[in-house]
């Protein structure tokens, strides 16, 4: 602990001032989810990693965290998938092309992509968990030579709630991707796999020591996916999980996202599973 009573602030920054960025595309994905393309002033790069998030604000409405859904390899703008669950997202739903929103970030640690290079990448995404995972998927596709197999397991509640349907089709048709999709309850038109996401895992053909897994989904999903992965023989140290929730200030100050000793906005949202095991409140 320092004894000096004076503390130079020269290296300190404005942490809470947003950059005003324009909405340059709006794509309605489902009844509740919309994909926004955001362009920073002068087309500046956000400079993010897959798995990172931004804080979005609308003046008068407040601020909330959103995962970046586009890969850093896609330049000039970035995308966020937004589910309408609260005040801010309700208002965003009414926004028009060209309108400006406040953006801070990117925040969080992001996916440790180096740990996945040269490995088989298995991505398990449930529901809205595909939004941040899409960043990693496209990152792998755009740097295809750096990774071995790309296996995607994606589950949604129903076929009407599937996100990025155009891209799902592309992944399904892409010989470089092993794509598996399931819905909990299919409509009469659904011809694919039915069942919760864990039912996809036993049938996977995995090269165990070679596989690195990245999991993202609603809180209830993690425990069951973990069980399925463990009984498949995936080692704990090869599992990474993204906890997509709870962040507020994004810079490790406000305290809201803290789970035990860990700030999700600093140490997460992507956790190495062995580290997460010690955090009793995490899963």
């Amino acid at each position: 602990m320092t004894n000096a009573s004076r503390t130079p602030s020269a290296e300190s920054r404005d942490l809470y001032l947003p950059v005003m960025a324009a909405i340059t595309d709006i794509r309605k994905m489902t009844e509740f989810e919309t994909l926004y393309e955001i362009t920073l002033p002068g087309g500046a790069e956000l400079g993010h990693q897959p798995g990172q998030f931004v804080e979005v604000s609308l003046f008068g409405m407040g601020e909330a965290p959103f995962s970046v859904s586009s890969s850093p390899t896609r330049k000039g703008s970035f995308e966020m998938g937004v589910r309408r669950v609260g005040m801010l997202t309700d208002v965003m739903d009414r926004m028009q092309l060209g309108e400006k929103i406040g953006v801070r970030g990117p925040f969080g640690n992001g996916v440790p992509v180096e740990k996945f290079k040269g490995k088989d990448v298995l991505i398990v995404a449930g529901g809205i968990g595909l939004v941040p995972m899409r960043s990693m998927i496209n990152y792998v596709l755009d740097n295809r030579g750096d990774f071995d197999r790309l296996i995607i397991c994606y589950g949604a509640r129903s076929d009407g709630e599937l996100l990025f349907t155009d891209e799902l089709k592309m992944w399904a048709d892409d010989p470089r991707v092993e794509f598996h999709v399931t819905v909990d309850h299919g409509s009469t038109a659904w011809t694919g796999h039915t069942g919760v996401i864990t039912t996809l895992i036993p049938g996977l053909d995995l090269d165990m020591p070679q596989t690195r897994v990245l999991v993202c989904g609603p809180p209830v999903m993690y425990r069951f996916v973990l069980l399925a992965l463990r009984s498949k023989g995936v080692a704990e140290e090869n599992i990474y999980m993204s906890l997509e929730r709870r962040m507020k200030c994004g810079v490790g100050k406000c305290g809201h996202c803290q789970i035990n000793s860990s700030y999700v906005c600093q140490d997460g949202p992507v956790y190495h599973y062995p580290d997460l095991k010690g955090l009793q409140e995490a899963l």
């Binding site: 008068g60 409405m61 609260g86 005040m87 309700d90 208002v91 009414r94």
Partner: peptide, 11 residues
């Protein structure tokens, strides 16, 4: 009142 007029849910 201001929240409702702005179309947002009051906190």
């Amino acid at each position: 009142f201001t929240s409702l007029v702005m179309g947002k849910a009051p906190i």
